[in-house]
Design a protein around this nucleic acid. Structure first.
Lengths: 127, 127
DNA sequence: ATAATACTTCAACCACGATTGAAGTATATC
DNA sequence: GATATACTTCAATCGTGGTTGAAGTATTAT
């Protein structure tokens, strides 16, 4: 038997991998405040431009960040939070880690073992 | 200038690092459903006992999981979600990634640059 | 005592990804 | 055209951490 996972779980796992990086959290934090160009992020985080670029690329591929070029001077790029996907992220996270999902112990193993259906165990997420 | 971070941001970063691991997400998912012993987790996830042990140890050190031994047969250990810390986790995550925190662009750099106070940029989290 | 069970710890291996430093691209200014 | 700016991409290095396989610990059963 292979543990089947819902697509949302996979997506959540991918997102968490992207977020599990202090620098990227800092970048997102700055983007939430409206700071958006590469050089400014670099100045605030004391980080080389290519690293900023790299992390932004990861965030962009994950769909968490959007990019736009300056209309007047196309050398400047501005980054912004992708709000719909951020909302999807918070929804997925809140749903997966919802404390209300915690069930009491139902031993199917060990001294007090009783029968427990597989659906009850594996099918708990998504609800 | 070094970017100062709030303690909650550090803690969130640590938690995310722990969560950015598919196996650990699967383990947490099973624990939410009440499955709690090592052998059972291993059976459901098709994972060697020492790996289960390793990942549970990481989750335990992060404060997300609690451990308890069977009263009748002390060889069996039961794992459970640490509810208070799970609630702290969801609260920290929801607060950090709250879409309402997204501010419009306030260019302090680039062609349309205007003055922007540092407090506005860096002090956005926590509120 | 001996053996089996349930789990943990250890050391070696290996892969992924962040960092580094340099070269490359595109646009704007002189 | 030549230089400067803003950013991206590339190849190489390096550390962290998951995996592997084995040995170790604690408890129970025979």
């Amino acid at each position: 038997m292979t543990a089947t996972e819902s697509p949302t779980t996979h997506q959540l796992a991918d997102w968490l991998k992207v977020l599990a990086e202090p620098r990227r959290l800092q970048i997102l934090n700055l983007l939430m405040a409206g700071v958006q160009c590469n050089c400014e992020l670099g100045a605030h985080l004391d980080l080389a431009p290519n690293l900023i670029s790299h992390h932004l690329s990861v965030l962009r591929k994950a769909g968490l960040v959007e990019v736009e070029r300056d209309g007047g001077d196309a050398r400047w790029v501005y980054y912004a939070i992708n709000r719909p996907n951020l909302e999807a992220l918070t929804a997925a996270f809140a749903s997966f880690f919802d404390p209300a999902r915690i069930l009491p112990r139902q031993p199917s193993c060990g001294p007090q073992a009783t029968f427990v259906s597989d659906e009850l165990i594996m099918g708990s997420y998504p609800s």
